[in-house]
Design a protein around this nucleic acid. Structure first.
Lengths: 175, 175
DNA sequence: CCCAGGTAGTTGCAGACGCAACTATACCCC
DNA sequence: GGGGTATAGTTGCGTCTGCAACTACCTGGG
């Protein structure tokens, strides 16, 4: 993902003049502010983390996430579908991400002998080393840019709130 | 953008086994969970809002945001740079977005007579109508998918927390 | 044994994005 | 005034993403 960033909304408030006097009935200003704050925080943090990770280790945030999933999996491997769901990306997106990681020699893709439809993506020793090299700085960056903004108790509350929002919008990425 | 979505990280925890025993020193699990929660909530909500808006009004979230900025501006117009900053996208991104909106007849682009470098992006009456048509449903969707998850007081706390995070990572998108 | 139906992945395609380089102005100062 | 520098936008380029269509393969029923 190099340095991609969701464009995304910004500012929904103050539309009353145009929509009539009831804009605040459509969207509570409190909610509007929170929404904008979410977009801003997300955008800034991911943009920064993304370019830092790329500069330091030559991998995109998406690459890191995919590899992180493999690292924590049995035998460092996962089926393509499982991996796509775990990394929150589409199946086609994962196919290409794995293509790339394979070129780097960080992951291999092998057809499953028992079920020919299935393919295993496996982290190579080289990939593991690359991940180990990248993780410390990246995790520290997350801690710094995101984690250090709030005390632990507040962070937990934030998590609960965000999970409630996520829960309201369930539905895995690969419908 | 139809249904674009940030891929983005997911799961940074449980790496201790691989990194040594100190993964939690690099990134507090509490922070890791919060980070993942943010990514998940953001991804799900924007994905849903994006496709709903596109289906209902034929405009992307980015289009909506840009038009929203113009709607709330003096004379429905803004200089390209101001608009890019306000809508949280890059200058080049805005150039193309405006190209598109201009094709739709929703926005015009005119060179400023006093300063030839400046270009004004102006919402057309047609654009205003399109925006008015799209806003109610979109705002309602934000209220439903995002706003309804938490009570007002909690929403305000969330806003404060997110703004603290955003503040820690200042730096406008167009450095 | 073969076909229908379902699952796993891949590919064609089109839409976005951002950075860096480039163009067009404006401004400043000698 | 002419040159150097700064600002506003645009364009070239490479990359990423997802959806829909397609291929490959397994499985169950007749």
């Amino acid at each position: 993902m190099a340095t991609t960033n969701k464009p995304v909304s910004a500012e929904i408030e103050a539309l009353s003049a145009v929509l009539g006097t009831d804009a605040s009935k459509l969207l509570d200003p409190t909610v509007a502010r929170a929404w904008i704050a979410l977009l801003t925080a997300y955008g800034r943090v991911t943009r920064a983390l993304s370019s830092e990770l790329m500069d330091a280790s030559g991998m995109s945030l998406a690459d890191f996430d995919v590899m992180a999933q493999l690292v924590r999996s049995e035998e460092y491997r996962l089926r393509m579908s499982e991996l796509a769901d775990a990394a929150l990306i589409s199946k086609s997106g994962l196919t290409r991400r794995i293509d790339q990681l394979a070129v780097n020699g960080w992951v291999t893709r092998r057809r499953c002998t028992e079920d020919g439809r299935v393919h295993w993506a496996t982290l190579t020793p080289l990939g593991l080393r690359a991940f180990k090299g990248a993780a410390p700085a990246h995790l520290a960056a997350v801690a710094e840019r995101f984690g250090s903004a709030l005390p632990a108790s507040e962070m937990e509350r934030l998590t609960r709130d965000l999970l409630k929002i996520a829960a309201k919008n369930a539905e895995p990425i690969n419908s």
